[in-house]
Simulated scan of single mutants.
Amino acid sequence: MPEPTRAVALAALTELWEQGCPIASPHDRDRLVDIGLRRWHSFHRRHSRIGQPSQEARIRDLVRGLVEAVEPEPGLVGPLVKDYECVAEAIAKAATSPLREP
């Protein structure tokens, strides 16, 4: 994955952590970014029947992937899902930013 994209995502999660998001912990940040970017970029392969998905649909899919990868019992996440949504939105923004490797 392009390093500038990864760096932008890591910086965004660092900012979320500083704002109080418990999911963006420094201990899990690299893992969240790797999982999130991989999930974001594999969306079309996993959902080939969807023509032009909305940004919201892609973010919901990203939230689901993050929860499933991180939580031991994903069905019990409850209100904490809002924090996963913030993380997913930050990763999606990094993945769609115009930054590209030279």
Rank of each mutant, 00 (worst) to 15 (best):
P2D: 15
P2H: 12
P2K: 11
E3W: 07
T5N: 01
A7D: 00
A7P: 00
A9N: 12
L10N: 03
A11M: 11
L13N: 02
L13H: 04
L13D: 01
E15W: 03
L16G: 02
L16N: 02
L16A: 07
Q19A: 13
Q19P: 01
Q19T: 07
G20T: 00
G20K: 00
C21G: 08
C21W: 10
C21L: 13
P22Y: 04
I23D: 00
A24M: 04
S25N: 15
P26A: 13
P26D: 14
P26M: 11
H27V: 05
H27K: 06
H27R: 06
H27D: 10
R29Q: 14
R31P: 00
L32E: 01
L32T: 02
V33F: 15
V33T: 15
D34W: 08
D34P: 01
D34A: 12
R38T: 14
R39H: 12
R39A: 11
R39N: 09
W40E: 02
W40K: 00
S42Y: 12
F43N: 13
F43Y: 15
H44T: 12
R45W: 04
R45A: 07
S48I: 04
S48G: 05
R49T: 08
G51Q: 12
G51N: 09
G51F: 09
G51A: 10
Q55M: 07
Q55S: 07
Q55V: 06
Q55K: 10
Q55E: 11
A57P: 01
I59W: 10
R60C: 09
R60E: 13
L62Y: 03
G65S: 05
G65K: 01
L66G: 03
L66F: 08
V67Y: 05
A69F: 03
A69C: 04
V70Q: 10
P72C: 13
L76N: 10
L80F: 14
L80M: 15
V81D: 05
V81K: 07
K82L: 14
K82W: 15
K82Q: 15
K82D: 13
E85N: 02
E85M: 02
C86Q: 10
C86R: 05
E89D: 07
A90M: 02
A90F: 02
I91N: 04
K93D: 15
A94V: 09
A95Y: 15
T96F: 11
P98N: 06
R100S: 06
E101S: 14
E101R: 13
E101A: 15
P102E: 08
